[in-house]
């Protein structure tokens, strides 16, 4: 079974040379730490920066340079700043190659819910609805089950949706799963996790074809 860093490490393998990538808050942010250093990738943050670098050294933080999580950041050579409309033009216009974000629930038809729990948590969708409505390539990073042990990979989402039929791939602490026309399809197992354990933790229909390889991290 993987921890959050393990999930980020596996997702980093989805990041290819020449990609512009938008990372969501939480596990997705960790992905930047594991991208191979022999490829060229630029990270976009929807508040208006392309070419994000690591966190600043202590004492060098600048209130005017933050990411979408409101964290102080730095920029790399070749970086640019822009306004919110241009930022979402990059996203809606499909200029960003890969979007990695977290989720509360994903359904076997690719629906995603990650912005609201009625009566409990109402923080808003931020840029998530724009991201999922437009991106060709959306990978969800999340734990396979919630804190109550219930599956987050469902037949249908129970929470208010963020987007419909948009998720292509899910990487959890247990598995790598593709969303196909016929539902979830198991691609890889996390180290030490059996296919039966993954089936048991998945509420939606899970296609299992042939031998399922273990993830290579």
């Amino acid at each position: 079974m993987l921890d959050k860093n393990g999930i980020a490490k596996r997702i980093a393998k989805e990041v290819k040379d020449g990609y512009y990538v938008n990372l969501g808050i939480g596990i997705p942010t960790l992905v930047a730490n594991y991208v191979r250093d022999d490829i060229e990738v630029e990270f976009q943050s929807e508040n208006g920066v392309l070419g994000m670098g690591p966190f600043p050294f202590e004492g060098e933080e600048d209130a005017d340079i933050i990411n979408a999580g409101k964290q102080t950041i730095t920029t790399l050579p070749g970086a640019s700043f822009f306004d919110s409309a241009l930022s979402f033009a990059m996203i809606r216009g499909q200029h960003v190659d890969l979007t990695i974000l977290g989720a509360m629930e994903v359904a076997e038809n690719g629906d995603i819910a990650n912005w609201k729990i009625p009566g409990k948590m109402v923080k808003g969708m931020g840029g998530a609805m724009d991201l999922v409505a437009s991106a060709e390539n959306i990978v969800v990073a999340m734990m396979h089950t919630n804190r109550a042990g219930e599956s987050k990979l469902l037949k249908r989402c129970s929470l208010p949706l963020t987007g419909v039929g948009c998720v292509k791939k899910i990487v959890t602490n247990l598995a790598v799963i593709e969303v196909t026309e016929n539902g979830f399809k198991l691609l890889e197992r996390a180290p030490g996790v059996s296919v039966d354990e993954i089936i048991a933790a998945t509420e939606g229909h899970l296609l299992v074809e042939g031998d399922i390889p273990e993830m290579q991290l």
Partner: peptide, 25 residues
């Protein structure tokens, strides 16, 4: 949605009465 917020401002700035967006469909 954040991109919709930005574009509803920009539409007002640019003289568009409304815009179509895929966000939130």
């Amino acid at each position: 949605p954040q991109g919709t917020l930005a574009e509803r401002c920009r539409a007002a700035q640019a003289g568009f009465p409304a815009i179509y967006t895929p966000a939130g469909f």
